[in-house]
Design a protein around this nucleic acid. Structure first.
Lengths: 136, 136
DNA sequence: TTGTACTGTAATAATTTTAATTACAGTAAT
DNA sequence: ATTACTGTAATTAAAATTATTACAGTACAA
């Protein structure tokens, strides 16, 4: 998981929650986040497939929340962004498999990464997008 | 925090715990992890300054655990690696500060990142390096 | 007292990852 | 038809990560 994607997606979702009911174009969102519109549209792919946002093509199109901010938790956003990856990574190189530790450590690490992801989900679960946007 | 550094440091620490009492050279460690020896020595900087490893210069030098694996938790290693950074990051660009949300979101995100780091520490705290290395 | 095998660290190069840009087909409103 | 969007692919640019090279400093040991 790219470490800054959660920040970007949560920022997008907060904008949508702050101005509910409106269709937001990726260009306007990108202007606010100061990132490229194509990157916004790419971030939206995961959020859409999780049902967190709806999009409309064509003139006056854009994106809006797929459900009420009260019914979206920050864990929902985190899980959408994370997908099947983890917040932590293995080393890019495969360790020496002839070594007792090197041959087995990656599987142990991967299961630990799953626990770590779940610990993050647990603390984000009770936090709603509604409450988050109301801070602003 | 670089996402793969925890994996690298934990692998190093596991090797040291598996063969306690010996001085391990960065070259041997690097060979086992299949990474560059200089990268190993750089990883060791944080582990040394946290007292988790001792090092010895000169011939027959190397590194070994700074204390018993029973007294090292995986959280100790995580915190050493993490330092003052977070596992998640802000977007690399500064959002539009004239926007109600853009002007304030980074501080909210940073405090959330602190909570996330702490949640990880909480689940790693009860896990000792001794128990981890005994899996192999 | 010299050779050997290390750490520590800096500087640079190579590689990989991430983000930006360009381009354009498809869609829908007007 | 024109305009303003999404969706997506392809390419380029920039940034981050990792590897490599180099060498001063240290300690052991012949």
């Amino acid at each position: 998981m790219v470490k800054s994607k959660f920040s970007i997606s949560l920022h997008i979702m907060t904008l949508l929650a702050y101005y509910p009911g409106e269709w937001h174009s990726s260009a306007k969102i990108a202007e606010s986040l100061k990132i490229n519109p194509v990157l916004v549209r790419k971030e939206l792919i995961a959020l859409k497939s999780s049902g967190l946002v709806d999009s409309k093509e064509g003139k006056n199109g854009g994106v809006k929340l797929g459900k009420s901010a009260k019914n979206i938790s920050l864990a929902d956003i985190f899980e959408a962004v994370k997908g099947s990856s983890h917040v932590l990574n293995l080393s890019s190189n495969i360790p020496d498999v002839s070594c007792k530790i090197g041959g087995q450590i990656n599987e142990k690490l991967l299961s630990m990464f799953g626990e770590i992801d779940n610990a993050i989900i647990d603390i984000l679960e009770p936090q709603t997008l509604e409450a988050f946007k109301n801070q602003f």
